[in-house]
């Protein structure tokens, strides 16, 4: 229960083609994250899966059955939205129970499922409150609870953490990860934040401009990005891209991750000047303007003492540099 298959999904709004042919296979119980810059069509794709939007062409199959013409409520899905989207006039209990009530489930069954979900999400003290009387984090937990109560084949999350502050975001992220483990349900999660994608996903789908750039496990995308876009999108700080010609190489672009650059005051491959230093505690980010390779970011573990204006040498780890051709594809 809970597999999803997308076949050549295309979507246009008027003249603008927003999705340009998306193919995807999601296995039962998988946690899939759609990640990509904002405006690339992630939400649109998720809404097509949910049935809130019709695809211009292509097929959506849930558990092997074509659902193109099935309304959202009958697809066996549940969705959590960025803006929580709780019903303002209903209590937390009724918010969670409405979907089942509409589907005609018997009252004791509804009560039982609400009780299970509210215990799971520690919502018991708030069941009789209205959404206006809850904090942002509590509201999002209610929204997640509302999805859990439906016991869907497919959970859909559209940037559920974007409206929360940083600390809550980490907590709620953990809660979603635990939820996935406990329910072993299929989940599709949309975010523009690559940290969320890396921490939650079994597999990540990197979207850009309406098409899939790469699908793979988080470490697969990190270690073996298919192209320049994925290499730049996954990892923080962003990968350094150096023009191949400047280094006397035949390839178009060379990529080095900031964490794969070592810095030494005395000797190294690329001599340069420190422009700015960011101390993050656990590590230090150095921005270096090098003569040979241009502006680079280096991430050094632990504390590194350097003054802006001082001279340093950056050296890439040879086995960890990436080469890209004219079209941005990585050369093995």
């Amino acid at each position: 229960m809970g597999s999803l298959r997308l076949e050549n999904i295309k979507k246009s709004f008027g003249q603008v083609e927003v999705l340009k042919g998306i193919d995807l296979d999601v296995k039962e119980g998988e946690f899939i994250v759609f990640v990509g810059p904002s405006g690339c069509g992630k939400s649109t794709l998720l809404r097509i899966v949910a049935g809130l939007e019709d695809a211009t062409s292509g097929e959506v199959l849930i558990d092997g059955a074509k659902v193109n013409t099935v309304p959202p409520a009958k697809r066996g899905i549940a969705m959590v939205f960025q803006t929580y989207a709780l019903y303002p006039h209903l209590t937390v209990r009724n918010n969670m129970g409405l979907g089942l009530k509409q589907a005609g489930a018997p009252a004791p069954e509804i009560a039982k499922r609400i009780a299970t979900a509210s215990t799971m999400l520690s919502l018991d003290p708030y069941l009789e409150r209205r959404p206006a009387e809850l904090s942002g984090g509590q509201r999002q937990r209610v929204a997640i609870g509302r999805a859990v109560v439906r016991e869907p084949k497919l959970f859909l999350f559209d940037e559920p953490l974007s409206n929360l502050d940083a600390a809550l975001r980490v907590n709620t992220r953990l809660e979603i990860a635990q939820l996935h483990r406990r329910l072993s349900a299929t989940m599709i999660y949309v975010t523009h934040d690559q940290v969320e994608a890396m921490t939650l996903a079994d597999r990540i789908v990197v979207l850009n401009n309406g098409h899939v750039e790469q699908i793979g496990a988080p470490m697969q995308l990190y270690n073996a990005p298919a192209n320049e876009f994925v290499a730049g999108f996954i990892g923080s700080p962003k990968m350094n891209f150096i023009d191949g010609g400047r280094l006397g190489e035949s390839v178009k672009t060379i990529g080095v991750r900031p964490e794969h650059l070592s810095v030494d005051a005395a000797k190294g491959d690329w001599k340069g000047t420190v422009i700015h230093v960011e101390h993050l505690g656990a590590d230090t980010n150095l921005y270096i303007d090098t003569e040979k390779a241009g502006l680079l970011t280096a991430r050094i573990f632990g504390e590194y003492r350097a003054e802006p204006g001082s001279t340093v040498h950056a050296t890439p780890e040879p086995a960890k540099t990436y080469r890209f051709d004219e079209e941005g594809r990585r050369i093995e």
């Binding site: 809404r47 949910a50 809130l52 309304p71 959202p72 409520a73 009958k74 899905i77 549940a78 969705m79 939205f81 960025q82 803006t83 929580y84 989207a85 709780l86 019903y87 409405l98 979907g99 509409q102 589907a103 509302r146 559209d158």
Partner: peptide
């Protein structure tokens, strides 16, 4: 009015 709210209603079968 937020689209999300209306969409939540649609998913709940309203």
């Amino acid at each position: 009015i937020s689209d999300d709210l209306k969409n939540a209603g649609r998913i709940d079968g309203l």
